[in-house]
Amino acid sequence: MTKEKVRNHCNSCGHNTWHDVEGMHSYTHNPDEYHCMVEHAVVKCRGCDLVSFRKVVHEYDAAYPTDDGEWKVPLTVDIFPKQDKGNLDTRYLPDIVDRIYEETCNAYRDGARTLSGIGFRATIEAICNDQEIKGKELSTRINNLASKGLISKKDSIRLHSIRFLGNDAAHDIKTPSRKSLDAALIIVEHLITTVYILDKESKGKLDEIIQKFEKFEDLLTNKLDGYNSGDEFPLQKYLGKDIRLLSGSIKSVESKLDEKIGKGEFKLLSFGKKAKYLDSSDELRHYVVA
C-alpha cells in the first residue's frame, strides 16, 4: 500500500522535503462552536528518515472565496520538534553573549516573538558590555561599536533597526512579525560573527594586514633567516611579496625601523648604502644582515 506523502520542513535537511505519513489521527470540532478539523500525523522524511510530528488545523469557519470561484480554507501547520533558530557555533562566545543569544533563539523557536524582539536587543547590549563599549544609551553604544572599528557604519544602521524593534516589544508590547525577526536574527548573527568568530577562524589560515610594528619585526626576523651575514638589500627585497601585508606606507615602517636600528634595539640589520635597486626609480635604503 502506497503511503500518503506531504511536504514538510525537516530539521535535519534544513528545508521542506517530501515526508511519508506513517500514521494519522483527525477529529472535527463542533461546528456550532468553531468549525475546524485537526489532524495529527507522524511523518518521516524521505531524504534522511528523520521522524517528526505534524499538526494541521483546517479552519473552515475562516474560509473565503478566491478569484477562481473556489473556497480557500486556511491551514495552520505546526511541526514538532520545532525548527531550530540560530545556527552559530558558540564556542568562541563569552558566557553572557552565549547565554542571551541561546535564550533568544529558543524563544523565537518556540514562537515567543515579543520576547525574541527584546532578546535580540539584549544580545547587542551583552556584546557592548563584553567589549566595554561606553555610552549611557544603546544608541550611543551602537555608534561607538562602529567608531571603535568593530563593525562598519552600515552594520550600525542595521543594529539601530533592531534597537527600535526591541524597544517596541519591551515598551509598547508590540509583537514583531516573523519576517522582522528573521531579518533580526541574520543581523545579530552577522554581528556575533564579525566580533567573535571571524578572527578566531581565520587566524593562521589567511594572510592578515600588519598593524603593529612588533608584528612587522616578527615578519622581518623570519624573512632574514633566509639570508646570510653580509647580504645587503633594500627592505623591499627582504620582505618580497609579503610587503603587501604592511598597513600604510613602507616609508613610515622604514622610519621606525631606522630609529630602532640607530638605538641598537633591532640588531639583525645595520645601515647600508643608499642606491637604486634593479629598475627602481628612486634610491632605496639598503640594510646589511648582521
Rank of each mutant, 00 (worst) to 15 (best):
D199C: 04
R7W: 13
S270V: 09
I124P: 05
P176A: 08
V6R: 12
S26N: 15
K237V: 03
S156I: 06
W18V: 15
H15C: 12
K44D: 01
Y287H: 05
K179I: 08
F271G: 06
N87R: 07
V42S: 07
S281G: 09
P94A: 05
G149D: 08
N8Y: 13
G14Q: 06
C128R: 02
Y64Q: 07
H171P: 01
L284I: 05
S229M: 04
V43N: 03
T17R: 14
D68W: 12
A62P: 05
H29D: 15
A122K: 10
I162P: 00
D279Q: 14
K72C: 10
G262D: 02
K85G: 11
I157A: 06
Y101S: 03
Y108H: 13
I118N: 01
W18D: 14
N30A: 06
A146H: 02
R109Q: 14
R46M: 09
A126I: 08
P81W: 06
P81Y: 02
R178A: 10
K273N: 13
A126V: 01
K203M: 11
A62Q: 10
F233Q: 05
N16K: 14
F120R: 09
K274N: 13
T175P: 01
P176I: 09
E4F: 10
K273D: 13
E137V: 09
M37R: 14
L246W: 02
K237T: 01
L159S: 02
V43G: 05
N106I: 11
S252L: 11
V188K: 08
E283D: 06
N129H: 05
D20T: 11
